[in-house]
């Protein structure tokens, strides 16, 4: 450590700033590479890699398209950092600090996932949205969307308990008039009081139960 009282990389002793200047063509090449990678990543996104490997996975819901896209993005980011931002020629510490910040962001994501992803792994009652034995949906959650179970204007049959539209009009024309009627109906369906509602819940929540079990 001796002798590094200033950790500047002294390029010369005159105290003035000296840098290596790249050619314009160099920057154009980097840009060309970035454009190529952009086109390439858009092209691969039309490819249903998830579906090919594990048939039935909705396009984009698996992990492989995601990994490929992230790998390409990381390449592009590396191009920008190294050459456009001159990290290659810059002081080492700057690169270290910047990369360090990305690592900390990674720690942030990894540790948080370590919680949210594994919540119900040890105990099936822990952290689930649907009670695995009764099928009851956890109160205080999505079921209460909007507070008063407001029916979206274009929904024909709204399930208040699930906070979800059971039957949906994609191109509706002025369904506001129905709102009052639908509302009452849905409410009556959703809240027949205590045990009744619970007994009914498993059927309505079957899909969710399955979804929860999958995790």
């Amino acid at each position: 450590m001796s002798g590094d009282s200033h950790d500047h990389d002294h390029h010369s002793n005159d105290g003035a700033v000296h840098v290596h200047v790249h050619d314009v063509s160099f920057y154009l090449k980097v840009f060309g590479g970035l454009i190529f990678l952009t086109v390439f990543t858009v092209a691969t996104s039309y490819l249903d890699i998830d579906g090919l490997v594990r048939p039935g996975t909705p396009h984009g819901a698996g992990g492989l398209n995601f990994l490929l896209a992230m790998a390409i993005a990381t390449c592009k980011a590396a191009f920008v950092c190294t050459w456009f931002m001159h990290l290659k020629d810059d002081a080492r510490f700057n690169a270290l600090f910047f990369v360090g910040s990305v690592l900390f962001a990674g720690v942030f994501l990894a540790y948080t996932l370590n919680d949210t992803y594994y919540r119900q792994h040890e105990d099936r009652y822990q952290g689930v949205h649907v009670d695995p034995s009764t099928g009851e949906r956890a109160p205080g959650g999505l079921a209460d969307i909007g507070g008063s179970c407001e029916v979206p204007a274009n929904c024909v049959s709204y399930n208040c308990e699930a906070g979800r539209c059971a039957e949906f009009v994609v191109h509706h024309e002025g369904g506001e008039g129905h709102e009052g009627g639908e509302h009452g109906e849905a409410a009556a369906e959703g809240h027949e009081g205590g045990e009744g509602a619970e007994a009914e819940a498993p059927a309505a929540e079957g899909e969710h139960g399955a979804e929860a079990a999958e995790h």
Partner: peptide, 10 residues
């Protein structure tokens, strides 16, 4: 209400 794995690491 964290997962057991997260509690272990932390």
């Amino acid at each position: 209400g964290m997962s057991e794995y997260a509690t272990l690491v932390f």
